[in-house]
């Protein structure tokens, strides 16, 4: 891994951390905050590709674990992994990797709808497939209850996939990183 790759990994960890400035909206039922930060996760994968994108989020999670308050609302510290939403944080890294993998696969013919489908596949399907069982386990509820509790967040994530796809396609045209 070259210095340039390390720089981009650090950069997207920082971008995802900086997106915490947009205020989180916490729904009362299960308390999962809707934040702009999952946009950073989608962009990390879609702009940097699988390995660099995934590692960018792993780096962010590492900095969170050692106590830096980088999540929306100034949350951070090892405690965030222990709560009911810890699975979504681990899922972020996997989601960025999957989005990056699919983006690399379809790079030469990447269009806006394609990028949107990729962002939904990684940022919604994969993310929830990890987050929901985790929530169900730590909160001691059934998978169905955890799924029902997560449904209100899906429209927000679809909107974020729409935005991320637009950014990924424009950045691909103006400053491509994956092709080099």
């Amino acid at each position: 891994m070259e210095t340039r790759d390390i720089v981009f990994i650090a950069l997207f960890a920082a971008i995802t951390a900086a997106l915490a400035v947009f205020p989180p909206v916490t729904l009362p039922v299960i308390g999962v905050p809707i934040t702009a930060q999952s946009l950073g996760v989608m962009l990390a994968g879609g702009v940097l590709g699988a390995m660099r994108g995934g590692l960018a989020i792993v780096l962010l999670l590492g900095l969170l674990a050692i106590g830096l308050p980088l999540l929306a609302g100034g949350r951070g510290g090892f405690g965030v992994f222990l709560g009911p939403t810890g699975g979504y944080l681990i899922g972020w890294a996997v989601a960025a990797f999957v989005i990056g993998f699919l983006t690399e696969r379809f790079w030469s013919r990447l269009t806006y709808p394609g990028a949107f489908v990729i962002c939904v596949a990684g940022g919604v399907v994969v993310l929830y497939a990890i987050g929901i069982p985790w929530s169900a386990f730590v909160a001691k509820v059934s998978l169905g209850t955890a799924l029902a509790g997560s449904l209100p967040f899906i429209p927000g994530d679809i909107v974020k996939a729409l935005i991320a796809a637009g950014v990924i396609v424009i950045v691909k045209r103006s400053y491509p990183i994956i092709a080099k």
Partner: peptide
């Protein structure tokens, strides 16, 4: 500002900075 209009310049500008930083580190290694 829509989020797209905010994020595209943010990403492109910081990617350029990232490339400059990488070149600076490379030049000093």
């Amino acid at each position: 500002a829509s989020l797209t209009a905010l994020l595209v310049p943010l990403v492109v500008r910081t990617l350029k900075t990232g490339d400059e930083v990488a070149q600076a580190i490379y030049a000093r290694s």
